[in-house]
């Protein structure tokens, strides 16, 4: 027996992933601006799904309040741009602020478990939303435009936003990938499989969860920045909406909770559903909610988790696998 990390498939697929990322970078040079804007939306979904999965799939933390960080990212951009900072620098600063704010929030939120954590995060998002509504400089309840982005011609603006989205997605997914591959990742996967058992073996559960929480704070903040830059108008009712959590839960549950590839698949599926069916209609949301509930009950590992289990397939090498070596000497 020997322990193997890379398989032929995973080598091939990791290469393909890198090639796709490089190809994606050329999209704004080749395609019309509406394609660029749509692909920006897809990248936002991928980022959101991966971050929610980092929390729920590896940390066992089911948050219904990640829209707190989405809103901080979007409003942070407005705030810094309003101070006269160049818009794209404002976006990076806003992402850093969202990540930084997740640290003090984690000290409260991570004391809670299961439903208390889920709804506790929701209340925190509500509190931040109310504070924004009370601030006239941020447009209060009626919303605010990112007018500073008008200094760029529309197709340049869309190209820049797309590249920023691609950059953020690559950075945060790589961060998660290398985190899961590092020695820390082994303890994270142990927490995912059985938190109490991991703790009894000496895994520092609280510190590991905080790492994931802060990563997700940064990532959701980045997604919020991009949502603001893509829509150019931010309004507390929609940017702090619990619907973001509904989308994240759908993508991760359908794709595969606790797998690296699953949420990406889930994001592509949601993107496909959104472009195929009329966007935002209530029947479409009924379908999303019912599908998420059905997956939770009947197929908890999601599409990708089930494929992985049945076929032993592993496209991106985040774990280890034990393989039988033919002709191996059996010795004690």
């Amino acid at each position: 027996m020997r322990v193997q990390r890379w398989t032929r498939t995973s080598k091939l697929f990791t290469g393909a992933t890198l090639a796709i990322a490089v190809l994606l970078a050329t999209v704004p040079l080749v395609f019309e601006s509406d394609v660029v804007q749509k692909l920006t939306n897809l990248l936002i979904l991928v980022l959101l799904a991966a971050m929610w999965n980092a929390l729920a799939g590896y940390g066992g933390l089911l948050s219904v309040g990640q829209q707190a960080f989405i809103g901080i990212g979007a409003y942070g951009t407005v705030f810094f741009a309003g101070l006269g900072v160049s818009p794209y620098l404002a976006m990076v600063l806003a992402t850093l602020v969202a990540g930084a704010i997740s640290v003090p929030i984690s000290f409260l939120a991570l004391r809670l478990r299961a439903a208390q954590f889920a709804i506790g995060m929701w209340v925190i998002a509500e509190v931040i939303s109310i504070l924004v509504r009370l601030d006239q400089n941020l447009g209060a309840g009626t919303g605010i435009s990112l007018i500073q982005l008008n200094q760029y011609a529309p197709n340049f603006r869309q190209a820049y936003t797309f590249w920023l989205a691609l950059g953020f997605t690559v950075i945060f997914l790589s961060a998660l990938f290398f985190l899961l591959r590092s020695p820390l990742g082994v303890s994270l996967q142990a927490i995912r499989d059985d938190e109490d058992a991991a703790r009894s073996l000496g895994v520092r559960v609280a510190a590991r969860k905080r790492l994931l929480f802060v990563l997700a704070g940064f990532g959701c903040g980045a997604a919020g920045v991009l949502i603001g830059a893509n829509t150019l108008f931010i309004e507390p009712g929609s940017i702090f909406s619990v619907q973001w959590s509904a989308y994240m839960i759908f993508m991760v549950l359908v794709g595969g909770l606790g797998t690296f590839e699953g949420p990406i698949l889930g994001a592509i599926l949601l993107f496909w559903i959104r472009t195929t069916f009329t966007q935002g209609g209530p029947w479409y949301l009924v379908g999303l909610g019912a599908t998420a509930a059905l997956f939770a009950l009947a197929l908890p590992r999601g599409i990708w988790g089930t494929i992985e289990e049945r076929l032993g397939l592993r496209l991106l090498p985040v774990g280890y696998r034990v393989v039988e070596v033919t002709g191996e000497k059996r010795s004690a």
């Binding site: 089911l62 219904v64 029947w283 009924v286 909610g289 019912a290 599908t291 509930a293 939770a296």
Partner: peptide, 28 residues
């Protein structure tokens, strides 16, 4: 009943899905 058998997160996920379904059916 189904969700109670499979861990602490499943009832939350399933009832969150149900919540979206009820809201939108009422909307329709």
């Amino acid at each position: 009943e189904r969700s109670l058998k499979s861990g602490i997160l499943t009832p939350l996920l399933a009832t969150f899905g149900l919540s979206i379904v009820i809201q939108n059916l009422l909307l329709i």
